[in-house]
Amino acid sequence: MINKNLEQQAQAIFKSWFLDYKPFNGVRPIDWINGTIDDLAKEVVCGKTPSTKVKEYYGSDVPFIKIPDMHGNTYVVTTEQYLSNYGAASQAKKTLPPNSICVSCIGTAGLVTLVASKSQTNQQINAIVPKDKYSPFYIYLLMQTLSEVINKLGQSGSTIVNLNKTQFEKIKAIIPSITDMKTFDALVSPLFALILENQKENIRLSSLRNTLLPKLMSGELDVSNLDL
């Protein structure tokens, strides 16, 4: 609930700046340009699954993001499956730096998350590595506003959504000035830092609960003498 409120605050600031132009007297600045997702990105990375026949590719080193890992999360902090360093190195160009923006483009399309640490994804996800000096949080919030567009573009008359990398890169996007993006980033980055820390703390608490609860239930951990 706390993280939801924090993200809603970030979304409200985004709307004020980039939809209503309130800091600019209700008028879009003339130095903002009409571009595409490709113009925002240093690179757009379409994920790939390393061969499952090579067991050594999988381990516990590098998060391997799939669509279920994205649901309900601002950041992907943990994943159901991990790659080994060896597996990640086998497709090094697919490695994403922190604060890359993942967008699901096949099946359940239009989910958007941020990458918490160096990660890779499967082929159902296109990820935006922001250009230097571009705000990852602007891009993250922008992609959320484009969620329905992504879904519709991927349908193409089919019930199965499949938006390829080329189509994804061509989606129209506003490119604010670097100065305005930096100012916006300074406003919202503390909110996202709190969200990430809260997610990590929730994971730590869940892990502690999962460790202690079986011991309490079995009687292995005796709390009868605690003064509560």
Rank of each mutant, 00 (worst) to 15 (best):
K48G: 10
T49E: 10
T49N: 11
P50E: 04
P50S: 06
S51G: 11
K53C: 00
V54Q: 13
E56Q: 11
Y57T: 11
G59F: 00
S60G: 08
S60L: 08
V62F: 06
P63L: 05
P68W: 11
D69S: 14
N73V: 05
N73P: 09
N73F: 03
T74D: 09
V77F: 05
S84F: 06
N85K: 15
Y86Q: 15
G87S: 14
G87H: 14
G87F: 12
A88K: 13
A89P: 00
A89D: 14
S90E: 07
K93N: 11
T95W: 02
T95L: 15
T95D: 00
L96T: 02
L96H: 07
P98A: 01
S100D: 12
C102V: 14
V103F: 07
C105A: 13
C105Q: 05
C105N: 10
I106N: 04
G107Q: 12
L111R: 12
V112G: 02
T113R: 05
V115K: 01
K118F: 09
K118W: 04
Q120L: 12
T121G: 06
N122I: 11
Q123F: 01
N126A: 08
A127E: 09
A127Y: 13
I128A: 03
V129Q: 02
K133L: 14
Y134F: 15
Y138L: 09
L141K: 09
M143D: 12
M143E: 12
N151H: 07
N151L: 12
K152I: 13
K152C: 03
L153G: 07
L153H: 05
G154I: 12
S156P: 00
G157C: 12
S158C: 08
S158H: 13
T159S: 15
I160C: 01
V161R: 07
N164E: 09
K165Q: 15
